[in-house]
Design a protein around this nucleic acid. Structure first.
Lengths: 160, 160
DNA sequence: ATGAATTGACCATCTCTGACTATTATAGCA
DNA sequence: TGCTATAATAGTCAGAGATGGTCAATTCAT
């Protein structure tokens, strides 16, 4: 039998046919399928994650919504994954700068963006004991890289 | 449904089109939208804060008014200093995002750069206990801002 | 038996209102 | 003139209502 999650997934994908993004009410959707609202979050987390090429944005409170955005196909995905693996849980400043330079060589980021990234991961920025800096730098760097690659896809303003 | 707050925000911004400041009667505005007067204060507080680049002045009593001023004529140098002061030693994510949005409004950064900055200072990026995050975010953010303004001086402008 | 799916209790955030407070102008009066 | 009462504004804050989020426990499908 088709799982509830599968039905919800299909429903959302049909809604998105032709559209690059849609907005839904979590509660309405849940009611439509007669399930718990959190079930919607489950479907979004398992079928509409960044890995699946989607970005979820939402707002709570009166007039709240859940927006589902489909990202374009990514040709550079392998590079991103390679870089994320390379960075792992810690990375020193020189290595990070080398990666940024590489991205600039490949015209994936321009000079201004490269300088921004260096600023964010510099020793100065990360005001912590030396040992912790590399770990924190890796976290910030990973996040920025993912953003860089999302930007490549044409959509410019999607944070996660 | 479009939220009342969103409508009021749009209305005010349309009034301010071309103008650098406007004056309104709180009660009149509230009546126009059929809401409680304090709703106007709510909109001003959440959409026209200093972080968003506005200043609110008002006077009570007969002939009272609310004046909404859009900050814009500061030189970029002063803006940098104002922002660094504003950020200080700690800043939460929402405030930082408001500042980034303001920079984007003023075309000081473009969409890609804004998204990069948000990525660098997001909760996800700063893998630390909550209490320390705001402090670290401020440090990273300050560093990025200084870089942004250095980029301006060099005139290295790449639009997307 | 195992991992996926589902639920429900509890949490976080955003809006909006109304009661109460603060401030200012002005009319009326001594 | 000077003082005071009143009317006309605006500000603040706590709380209710409306959403969405998270996570641990449970159930289900293979």
């Amino acid at each position: 039998m088709a799982q509830l999650s599968d039905s919800i997934e299909r429903f959302i994908k049909e809604l998105m046919d032709e559209e690059t993004q849609i907005e839904v009410r979590r509660n309405e959707l849940a009611q439509h399928f007669g399930c718990a609202p959190s079930q919607i979050n489950y479907v979004l987390a398992t079928r509409f994650s960044v890995d699946h090429g989607y970005i979820i944005e939402s707002r709570r409170g009166g007039g709240g919504y859940v927006r589902i955005v489909r990202m374009c196909e990514r040709s550079e995905e392998n590079l991103l994954n390679a870089l994320l693996t390379r960075i792992g849980n810690a990375v020193d400043e020189d290595s990070a700068c080398a990666i940024i330079a590489h991205l600039q060589d490949r015209k994936i980021v321009n000079g201004r963006e490269a300088s921004l990234m260096r600023a964010a991961i510099s020793r100065n920025a990360l005001a912590l004991p030396i040992s912790a800096k590399d770990v924190l730098r890796a976290a910030v760097f990973r996040n920025m890289l993912q953003q860089v690659f999302r930007n490549l896809e044409g959509g410019v303003r999607h944070d996660v």
